[in-house]
Amino acid sequence: MKKSLLALSVLALASTSTFAADQSDGDIHKNDYKWMQANLMYSVNELPGESDHDYLEMEFGGRSGIFDLYGYVDVFNLTSSADSDKADADSKIFIKFAPRMSIDAVTGKDLSFGPVQELYIASEIDWDGANGGVNQQKIGLGSDVMVPWLGKIGLNLYATYDSNLKDWDGYQVSTNWFKPFFFFENESFISYQGYIDYQFGVDDSFAALKTSSGGVMFNGIYWHSDRFAVGYGLKGYKDVYALKDDGLAGKTTGFSHYVAVTYKF
């Protein structure tokens, strides 16, 4: 399952800003924006399961007052092909919904310090609709941080609640970035974009299935115009979702490839 990419030029512009989110004037809507795009995707050797499959992703996000939002809905095997690795899957969807609430905007204060531009109460909901499938909620502290060359990145630390187990199970640190680095005369550009999700402190008492930590890193090179984007991504896995490599979940460490064609609404 692909994670979120901040794949819009408006976010590219935001990532180059060096100004903190000053909310002291009381106008919490001055930086509002919204976006939505459709991504036609194909993955090769996606882990776990070494799956090759097509899918449509509706991706969206924006800012409205105190709220910052990112999310997407994936629909697998669009052609209903019997040859797809998702043909017999229990669920043909995956949903991620990740709202953050700005502490700066709620308090009306500029809480920036050093490279930290803004602080949030961050959350994330992951769900695939299958009985006993992915059903997790995460809550923690989020931030926007300025780093050299990349510009502004999101950086969040969550505690994870597993609704299937009815218990808290470990933590996750996540970061994402969007860096335009080559511009054409027609104002289209090439970007380096991606994310890291790393789980730790996971209950590994079921040693045949789980490890205490694991994660993924997505590295994408995309061409963007006002309405379209085309890109390639390389995702590296290490015990993805804290599932033990070559355990009951199969292969969970390695690399997969993604190609994408995007239309921006």
Rank of each mutant, 00 (worst) to 15 (best):
A7Y: 09
L8V: 15
A12I: 00
L13F: 05
A20K: 01
A21E: 10
D22C: 01
S24G: 05
D25C: 01
K30I: 08
D32G: 06
Y33I: 09
Y33S: 09
W35M: 09
M41V: 06
H53V: 08
D54H: 14
D54T: 13
L56C: 03
G61M: 01
R63V: 15
I66D: 08
Y70A: 12
G71N: 11
V73G: 12
V75C: 08
F76A: 12
N77E: 06
T79E: 11
S80E: 15
S84D: 11
K86W: 09
A87M: 06
A87H: 13
M101T: 14
M101E: 05
S102T: 06
I103N: 01
D104Y: 03
D110T: 02
D110F: 00
D110S: 02
L111S: 04
S112C: 11
S112T: 10
P115R: 06
P115L: 08
E118H: 03
E118P: 06
L119V: 13
L119N: 05
Y120M: 08
S123K: 05
E124D: 15
D126K: 12
W127Q: 07
G129P: 14
G133Q: 06
V134W: 01
V134P: 02
Q137G: 14
G140Y: 06
L141G: 03
G142D: 04
S143H: 02
S143R: 02
M146K: 15
V147H: 03
G151H: 00
K152Y: 02
N156F: 13
L157K: 01
L157A: 15
T160F: 00
N164L: 06
D167T: 12
Y171E: 11
Y171M: 12
V173K: 00
T175V: 11
K179Y: 14
F182L: 14
F183I: 07
F184T: 13
F184H: 13
F184L: 15
F184W: 13
E185V: 11
E187A: 11
S188H: 08
Q193A: 14
I196T: 09
I196Y: 04
D197S: 03
F200D: 03
D203C: 05
D203L: 03
D204Y: 01
F206S: 08
S212Y: 10
S212I: 08
S213N: 12
G215D: 06
V216R: 11
V216Y: 04
M217T: 13
G220D: 15
Y222F: 13
Y222K: 07
W223G: 00
S225K: 01
S225I: 04
F228V: 07
V230Y: 13
Y232N: 03
K235M: 12
K235A: 13
G236K: 12
Y237S: 12
K238D: 14
Y241D: 11
A249R: 01
A249W: 04
G250Q: 04
K251A: 10
T252L: 07
S256D: 12
S256F: 05
Y258A: 12
V259L: 12
K264D: 05
F265E: 04
F265H: 01
